[in-house]
Design a protein around this nucleic acid. Structure first.
Length: 551
RNA sequence: GCCCCCGUAGCUCAGUGGAUAGAGCAUCCCCCUCCUAAGGGGAGGGUCACACGUUCGAUUCGUGUCGGGGGCACCA
């Protein structure tokens, strides 16, 4: 419909101003008074044509061929042209939805190309906290969105199982194995003090076996074997994080270990390739990468004086590996504290000069989450000590509400997670509000108890009151919303859309009855709410939130 | 000092180079003989942080200032 109107306008513009190249912009007006579509084309043309925009609008409309879909066009305001679809065109969306079913709103924009979404990527040094939860919710929704837009999506989790933080974890567990209290002065100064360290130590001493990422590790129980403590602790916490992710209903396709980049020689190869590229130099007994060649404000050390590599070297190796695995697109969903790495990783990849496009990979960085309960900030978790865990949240407010609240805000703005609101079972709570709309429709259809396949061929011409028009307009915007959300890498767009759709439905529900005597009107209305149910479900699926049939 | 994000109603947040800047909560009023009131309708509530610039038009784009948060190691 949109492309049809755009074409009509383009033809009209060519008639009036053949020599001008203008982009035709069609938008859906906020107010129903302004029709189904509107364009500012006349305003844009006003300057080059040196004419009054309303006069141009009149000419444009005169130059537009007749369309089977348009009931009327109107000039409004400063010179907007508003298009009102005829009722048949408005109603068509209901049939489209019912025919496409769960496929409705999906498109093939990605053309089956490979995209990787890397998210969470928490190091195995403790349970996942609410910040990881935000990354998990946003990352998973991004993956779902890209899938709906025709991309071949791989979900990946990368973790550091070798660095200084892991050493810290190891000596923390060792200290607990020896019975040293976290309060005691001989406990490692920067050690981890959460209760889970106790649990790991206890499991280690009793020679437990844990399985994580298909690796089985049995504790030796030997407190003099640091390697054994390390391997067991990492596996133990990876297993814990797996349980956290399972509770959050998130699955990864690939787990990547930082240590593997060393053992397979990829770090070494990357360093050599960077040296060969000519973008490195030795100074002060260290090896530097000239990231300033690629827009950084100063060069960065790659190999330290002690011979070890700085963290972004394996990062470059890792991303080279991603590129070699054939991902034309990579999206890294991380906390905002990672933003300083973006320039360095991209610079390193450009330095390699292996055909990686400038600006690859994409990053989606999310800002901090604060958790509130009873009007006060919650800072402590029994298990983890210094932060609120994802598991605490899921247990307290449920998976659906947690996912919704963490994904329903723009990633780049700070988020206040209000536990009381997330638990509320009223229209304060947008999750319940949306789920309730779905459940209400289910309830009506159940009570009707008819053959739903008949709804696909219902006569929709009775659908013409303002509530129905508004609902159909909203439904017809769904496909564009899915595209926009993917283009902007912004899952919250879906959440907002669903809230609006639910609102339209509730409003309609209150104003009209569906199970009525008049068979034609009844079937038309049931078709409309059936289509609404489908779109609610499709949208909730994109967020990973359950579409409940009854509440 | 430099870099990134944010600043919109009392609160939590949407939104947009254009038409009267929206939603929920909170406050006030109204609606169940009725398919789930976990709902709906209405009222009030705004200098879109501030200033300057670009533009026919700026809350939106640019620059600067202020405020909040995060990042600026041969840490990861």
């Amino acid at each position: 419909m949109k492309t049809h109107l755009t074409q009509l306008l383009a033809n009209a513009a060519k008639t009036i101003a053949p020599e001008l190249q203008v982009a035709i912009l069609l938008e859906r007006p906020k107010s129903a008074d302004h029709g189904d579509f509107a364009t500012n084309l006349a305003l844009v043309l006003a300057k080059p044509l040196k004419q009054n925009p309303r006069a141009i609008a009149t000419q444009l409309i005169a130059a537009m061929p007749n369309s089977d879909y348009i009931a009327k066009t109107e000039i409004a305001g400063a010179g907007f042209i508003n298009f009102f679809l005829n009722s048949h065109s408005q109603q068509k969306v209901v049939k489209d939805i019912l025919q496409a079913g769960h496929q409705y709103g999906r498109n093939q924009n990605g053309q089956g190309q490979k995209v990787q979404v890397e998210f969470v990527s928490a190091n195995p040094t403790g349970p996942l906290h609410v910040g990881h939860g935000r990354g998990a919710a946003v990352g998973d929704c991004l993956a779902r969105l890209l899938d709906a837009n025709g991309w071949d999506v791989t979900r990946e989790f990368y973790y550091n199982d070798a660095g200084a933080q892991i050493d810290n974890l190891t000596i923390s567990v060792l200290a607990r194995c020896k019975g040293i209290s976290t309060e005691h002065e001989s406990f490692p100064e920067n050690g981890y003090r959460g209760e889970y360290i106790n649990d790991i130590a206890a499991a280690y001493l009793t020679k437990h076996t844990v399985i994580a990422d298909d690796i089985e590790v049995t504790a030796s129980g030997d407190i003099n074997n640091l390697d054994s403590i390390r391997a067991f602790s990492v596996a133990y916490l990876r297993h814990e994080q797996d349980l956290d992710l399972k509770a959050f209903q998130i699955k990864f396709d690939v787990f990547s270990l930082e240590s593997a980049l060393y053992t397979t020689g990829k770090v070494k190869d990357t360093v050599q390739a960077l040296i060969n590229s000519g973008h490195t130099y030795e100074a002060n007994d260290a090896l530097w990468l000239k990231t300033t060649d690629f827009g950084d404000d100063k060069d960065r050390v790659m190999r330290k004086t002690d011979g070890s590599y700085t963290y972004f070297v394996p990062d470059i190796a890792y991303h080279t590996d991603k590129w070699n695995r054939g991902f034309v697109r990579v999206i890294n969903e991380q906390g905002a504290d990672h933003h300083s790495t973006i320039t360095r990783v991209r610079a390193g990849l450009q330095a390699l000069n292996i055909g990686i496009p400038n600006g690859w990979p994409d990053y989606v960085l999310h800002q901090m989450v604060t958790v509130m309960r009873g009007g006060e900030e919650v800072k402590l978790s029994k298990r983890a000590g210094s932060y609120v865990t994802l598991r605490d949240l899921i247990e307290e407010v449920g998976c659906d509400a947690t996912r919704y609240f963490l994904a329903a805000r723009r990633a780049d703005s700070q988020l206040v997670f209000d536990i009381d609101l997330a638990r509320a079972q009223t229209n304060d709570n947008p999750v319940f509000y949306i789920q309730y709309a779905h459940a209400r429709i289910c309830s009506v259809l159940t009570q009707w108890n008819g053959d739903k396949s008949l709804l696909l061929s219902a006569d929709l011409s009775p659908l013409d009151n303002p509530h129905e028009t508004a609902l159909m307009q909203r439904l017809s915007a769904y496909s564009e919303t899915v595209e926009n959300a993917a283009n902007e890498l912004a899952p919250h767009v879906i959440a907002n859309y669903l809230k609006d759709l639910a609102s339209d439905l509730h409003s309609y529900y209150n104003e009209y009855k569906f199970l009525i005597e008049d068979e034609t009107v009844k079937m038309a209305r049931l078709s409309l709410i059936y289509a609404t149910q489908q779109v609610l479900k499709n949208g909730l699926d994109l967020l990973g939130v359950t579409a409940k049939e009854r509440m």
